[in-house]
Every structure is written in C-alpha cells, then in structure tokens.
Design a protein around this nucleic acid. Structure first.
Lengths: 195, 195
DNA sequence: GTCTATATGAGGATAGAC
DNA sequence: GTCTATCCTCATATAGAC
C-alpha cells in the first residue's frame, strides 16, 4: 500500500521541472497555475515550494538550464575542420539537439517576455553566445572565399530561424524520417551560403 | 472640458483591438487582464464588453483578421510570371507584409495554443492556404527544372521559417535598412532553391 | 517532504445607474 | 456607451500539523 506522505525529494524535484516544462510549453507560463503543475506531479500545490521559491524562479531555471545545456553541448561536440565541415557540424548539431526538445525550445523562445529584466538579460547573453558560434563559422568561410555572405549577422539570424523553425512543424512519426529532413535542411543551408 | 461619459463606439472599437494586440504581443494572452486592456484604452473594464462578448473572442478576432488580411493581400498582390519571378514576389511580399506587423505576427504564431479547438482549426486552415501559395511556386519551379527541391512541403516550411524569423530580431532604425535586409534574404532564398 | 487550511489579492464577467 | 459596484472563482504563497 502506498503511503500518502513521505520524503521523495530526489524523485519529486525533476518531476516538478518536467511537469512545469510540459505544461508551460502547452499553455504558456501565465496560463499555468501552480496547482496544475502540482496535480501533474501528483502532489498538493504547497509542496512545490520545497523545490522553488516561487513560480518565476521555476521558469528561470527551466530556461537557464536549457540554454546552458545547449551551449555546453555545442562547445563539446562542435569540432574543427574547414568552414564547410564546421557548418555541416553546426547544422547537424542544431537539429539533433533541438528536435527532441521541442518543449524546451518553445519555452526558451516564447517565454522570454515572461522573465523579469535581470533573468531576461542573462538568457539573451547565453543565446547570443550560441549564435556567435555560427556567425564565426560564416565569417571565416567568407574570408576563405568558401562562402558568399553579404552580412554575417543577418545570415546567422536567418539560418537559425530556418533551422529552429523546424520545431514548429516537425512531429515524430511524420511523413519523413528525421535523417531525411536533416539532409534537406543541410542542402538548403549549404546552397544558401555557397560562393 | 472633456466629458467623462458618452458614446464613442467608432473610436473605442479599434482602440480596444489595438490595445489588446499590443499588450498580448508584449505579455501574452493569459498574462493580460481585461482591466489592463481597459486602462490602455482609457475606459473601465466593464465597457470592453460592448466590443467583445468575452476575452477569448477578442483574441480570435485579432488572429482571424490578421490571417485574412494576409491571405487577401497575397491573393491581390502576387502576380504571375516565371516561378523565379513569383518566388521573388513572394519573398518581397512576405517580408513587407510581416515586418510592419511584428505584433500581429507574434500573436498569430504564439497564441495558437490559447485558442479553443474550433478557432485553432480555423486559423490553421488559413495559414495552410498561405503556405500553399509558396509550395505551389516551388512545385512548379521544380517541374520546370528552375529549382532543385528535394521536398516541396519541407522546403516551404523551411523558407517560411527563415523569412518569418526576421520578425524576431529586426528592429526599425537598426544597423541595416530594410531594403538591404530584404535583398540579403532574397539572395539566401534564391540560392537555396536554385537548381 | 507533504499535507490541509488559509491569507490576500486579482481575474473575468454582469447589473443597473446615468 | 460608459460608469461604479459587485459576484464568484481562482491565483500565489505561507503556516503549522504530521
């Protein structure tokens, strides 16, 4: 027989984050109540405050850890080589990192407006660091004459928009396997920047 | 001296929509209260209900009219010609229509989740009609051998993501004039689909 | 660590006076 | 058409028992 009360901090902590992420992605930060999150976890609302000082901190944690994981993974996995190799790596990495994390992506992009100014600035800085990885690749390729890029910053934002937009329509088990979509996207990017 | 009460239906109606759009774009549908909208308009909350039966209908109207204007303008302004001409027209049209309407774009994309199922389906149908205009151009160009496109649907979504993403970072009075950014984007699209 | 109970406030929406 | 006043519900967050 299951006890109704007890200590579960190691289980409940992640469950709170998972539940919050899922619900916020689906309905939006403001639309989700602490009661809903608690119900999803299977506890009462008051219990959540063992894991977060308040609702805003919960959102900040979700967004910060997403961006930090993204940056850490990028720095870990993106190697060297020619600008074309590095661009290919970046496209592949970006897609493979983001596609299994549609909820995180959606929240990280859409709930910026729900952040208080300080947290907003922190997240934006992390995002800018990530964008700069791509921008550096483009700039180097342009210098070497491999790419033809009128403006590295604008092209960076355009390509990130192109790739990230995939999370808006891709659904697992859809018409095309992920590997094929990845190839199509890589083809578009490669041709778009080619000299 | 200004009167405190009176009839202003012709002025107040649009003001309600403008205020709602601005606030929802900034803070999100769920985060904006009818009291906030009323304050922005300069009336009391109760007065809003002369212009909308409820909050949800207000959102639906904003989204529906944005999508209907988009479709109507596209059908009016997009002409014929070669697939390359038509693609160029589409890119230009898309950018020029969306850039001055960042609030509408943001709301139309981000608040889909705040719509009740029926309204959601209606908006999605309108969006799909718009996407199909681009998809038809790509398909025709592929048939004529002008474009090299592995998958028209995926390419459509990728290009729309690329172009619409501009609304996320473009700010009037920024580093580059709009015409130049438009040219950069057109260059990316043209090269990406070139055979 | 979780529960129940509650303080305190804000939300959407309506009623009736002007 | 707008106002004031209000109903009722739901929100976040806290307190204290277990």
């Amino acid at each position: 027989m299951a006890r109704k009360q007890g200590s579960h901090s190691e289980i409940t902590g992640p469950k709170v984050r998972d539940a919050a992420l899922k619900l916020i992605a689906r309905h939006g930060y403001a639309a989700v109540s602490m009661r809903q999150i608690a119900a999803e976890v299977g506890v009462q609302a008051g219990a959540l405050y063992n894991y977060t000082p308040d609702k805003q901190s919960l959102l900040q944690d979700l967004m910060r850890s997403h961006m930090e994981e993204l940056l850490a993974a990028a720095r870990r996995e993106l190697g060297g080589g020619s600008p074309l190799d590095r661009l290919r790596s970046f496209v592949t990495f970006h897609i493979r990192f983001h596609l299994p994390r549609v909820d995180q992506v959606f929240v990280a992009y859409m709930e910026l407006r729900s952040l208080e100014p300080e947290a907003f600035a922190e997240i934006e800085k992390l995002r800018r660091s990530y964008e700069n990885i791509l921008q550096d690749i483009l700039t180097q390729g342009e210098r070497e004459g491999i790419f033809a890029i009128p403006d590295a910053r604008v092209t960076t934002m355009a390509l990130i928009g192109l790739m990230t937009g995939m999370t808006n329509w891709y659904r697992e088990g859809g018409r095309l396997p992920m590997a094929e979509i990845e190839e199509i996207y890589w083809g578009l990017v490669r041709k778009a920047v080619a000299s």
